[in-house]
Every structure is written in C-alpha cells, then in structure tokens.
Simulated scan of single mutants.
Amino acid sequence: MTDGPPELTSLERTALYKSLGNPLRRRILEFLGEHGEANSTVLARGLGESSGTTSYHLRKLAEQRLIEEIPEKSGGRERWWRTLPFRHTTPDPATMTAEEYAAAEHLALLKIDVDTELFRRAHQEYRGPEGWAQVQRHGGWMTQDELHAFLRDYNALLESYSHAREDAPEGARPVSLRFYAVPDGVGEWNGEPTGP
C-alpha cells in the first residue's frame, strides 16, 4: 500500500480492510477500474449478482470514499459510479487493535494470492526488454533512511509516468506494478551484525 490519509482511525482502517477483503467488493472495484463506470444493473449483469446486492455494496464502498457517484449520469433511482483515487499505508502492526490486525492480515493474504498470479503472468508474458511484461530483481546495501528516500523517489517516478484513465494517451494500458523491499535476515558480515 502507498502513502495515504493519516487521519483514518483504527475503526475506519478496520472497516476499510474488511471492505477490501470482501470478495464481491473487490470484484466491483476491479470492474469499475476496468470499465471506468457502472450502475448496479450493469454490475449485476457483469458479476452474476442481483442488482439489489450490487447496489448495497456500492453504497458501502461510497461510504468509505473508494467510489463516488457520477452526478451528470445519475438520475432518479439510477445511480452511476466510478472509482476514486486511493492511497493508503498500513500502520505498524504493533499499533493495531486485534480486530484491525486480523482484518489487515486477511487482506494481506488475499493480496499475496493476487500478487503471486501477477508474478506468474509477468514471467509467462515476458517477450523481451521491449515488451509490456517486465520482470526486474535488484539488491544492494542501504541504510533505513536511504531505503525510505528510495521509496519516496520511486513513488514520485510512478506519479510522473502514470495517468488517470480519462487523461491517458492513446495506446496506454492499465499496468500493475508491485514494490517490495525486505532486508536480509540477521547474520554477520565481517564480524558485524546485519539485518533489522
């Protein structure tokens, strides 16, 4: 997860993690991300659910500011929705309540499954350094401050090359990127301790 609103309380974060961990809500967000907009009827057809069910989950996602109504397309009982930009950093697990941690852990496990599938696809779809699918692995020695500075620069670089769906140039495609940084385990190097 990336930088996000620090004003979220533990209860709000718990609700957020539960929402993002709900399979149907995740499918709704994925559908809106892929198609740009939809109403409950379109979603019901696309996801094989009832419009009453999709309508309920749309309202819940809107309460958490993950989606918003499109006023110019909505009228009467027909409401159209689109995703909102979203960024969030999960706090230190040591500061979480038990319920928040359980919800965050459940969501993390779901994400591992999604990320593992993306990793497989990146390897399967790799067509050389000029193709769409890319796989990179790097390592090096950094201080913790340098790692945090690298992450800030990485996020700035992503923002400089990314576009909102409505502003994307011709030929642009949605691209999934993941970033992980993990220090090697505690050991010794030249008699000095390494790792966290």
Rank of each mutant, 00 (worst) to 15 (best):
P6W: 00
T9I: 07
S10G: 15
L11K: 14
K18T: 09
S19A: 15
N22F: 08
P23R: 12
I28V: 12
L29M: 13
S40T: 06
T41K: 14
V42S: 10
V42T: 15
V42N: 03
L43M: 04
L43A: 04
L47F: 03
S51E: 13
R59S: 13
A62M: 12
I67M: 06
K73W: 08
S74F: 07
G75L: 09
G75K: 13
R77W: 05
P85L: 10
T95Y: 07
M96F: 06
E100Y: 11
A102C: 09
A102H: 13
L107K: 06
D115A: 09
R121Q: 15
A122Y: 06
H123S: 12
Q124G: 08
E125N: 14
G128K: 09
A133K: 03
R137K: 09
W141P: 11
T143C: 10
E146Q: 15
L147V: 11
L147P: 01
L147S: 11
H148Q: 15
L151A: 00
L151Y: 00
R152N: 06
D153H: 05
Y154F: 14
A156S: 08
S162K: 01
A168S: 10
A168I: 07
E170P: 14
R178K: 07
A181R: 06
E188R: 10
G191I: 01
P193F: 04
